[in-house]
């Protein structure tokens, strides 16, 4: 570094005989080179934590069960022909899309309500509403499991108290699917709420005043001003949440363990079941790889839209 610095201070003073080392120095002094060197640690971390496991997973997915022979795309073929796995694809999409939509809607509704509470009371409510998000999900899911579990179910007890029937929360496929979604929404909505609250606060009041004078009702202001102004935040949170929800593991694992009849499995829990519990690691890897193209396509379109809007507006 010191020789570098002195070279930078006295450019062109390098003796002609050292032409090669001077061009090397010039290369080292280029901004892009410096930038590359400075980001090298980060690139190494990303390489070690993302690129390597990803390529290793792809490699694994092409091996046979005992990991002794290369079998190409056979694992993927077998999976696609498997009734249970096709159910997993369907359930993963249904689970992720429904849960994310509900989280976004409820999160927005909560944010909107919070935004209209005077700032003194707001902190208290915000803190309380964030609680589901800060409890480790494995733990809170256990609590939900208790509330759903047929013999102790407090929810059913409440339903009965109001004259309703008992519901087989975890025993019947559709109710089990709904239960998993309920818990995921309960856990994830506060994240949306906090993001949308920040976004709401960033919309200048004058825009609402201008809209009110232009003749907008509260609802029209929401549709024509608030939502368009929040579109980037909405797309990014939805994308982010979609990725996390698709890859959700703990809630399904604790609440239903994929049951009844493997009908509530999502990619991650099914990959664990196939790869670790049944000991077919290559096929488990193949299961988890199915998420990737799905999410990549969604991410591509969402991020492109975000980019475009950012250039036009902010």
């Amino acid at each position: 570094m010191p020789s570098d610095a002195s070279a930078a201070l006295a450019p062109g003073r390098a003796p002609a005989s050292a032409a090669r080392s001077s061009s090397l120095r010039r290369f080292a002094r280029r901004r892009s080179t410096v930038a590359f060197l400075m980001t090298l640690p980060l690139i190494a971390v990303i390489g070690g934590l993302v690129a390597w496991p990803a390529s290793y997973a792809i490699y694994l997915a092409t091996l046979n069960r005992r990991m002794t022979a290369f079998i190409g795309l056979e694992n993927f073929d077998i999976l696609l022909e498997n009734e249970t796995f096709r159910g997993v694809i369907w359930q993963s999409c249904f689970f992720a899309i429904t849960a994310v939509l509900l989280k976004a809607l409820i999160g927005f509704w909560l944010a909107h309500m919070l935004h209209h509470i005077p700032s003194k009371g707001q902190r208290k409510w915000r803190g309380m509403l964030l609680v589901p998000w800060v409890i480790p999900p494995a733990l809170s899911t256990l609590g939900w499991w208790w509330m759903f579990e047929p013999s102790y179910s407090s929810i059913n007890w409440l339903l009965n108290a109001f004259g309703g029937p008992s519901i087989p929360w975890l025993g019947e496929p559709w109710w089990a699917r709904i239960s998993v979604i309920i818990v995921n929404v309960w856990y994830g909505a506060p994240f949306f709420m906090i993001m949308y609250l920040a976004a709401l606060k960033s919309v200048p009041d004058q825009l609402y005043e201008a809209a009110a004078i232009d003749g907008a009702t509260g609802w029209q202001g929401l549709v024509h001003v608030t939502l368009p102004m929040m579109r980037n935040i909405i797309s990014i949170t939805v994308l982010f949440s979609l990725i996390v929800t698709f890859a959700n593991y703990d809630i399904v694992r604790v609440l239903t363990n994929g049951g009844p009849r493997d009908l509530t499995h999502v990619f991650a829990s099914y990959a664990f079941q196939v790869g670790v519990l049944s000991g077919n690691i290559p096929r488990g890897a193949a299961v988890s790889l199915f998420m990737f193209p799905l999410l990549a396509v969604v991410a591509f379109f969402v991020l492109r839209g975000v980019n475009r809007r950012q250039k036009e507006m902010a």
């Binding site: 825009l207 201008a210 001003v225 368009p228 102004m229 579109r231 036009e312």
Partner: peptide, 8 residues
């Protein structure tokens, strides 16, 4: 400060 709608 004009208060134009930035997205329109």
């Amino acid at each position: 400060n004009y208060a134009l709608y930035p997205h329109m």
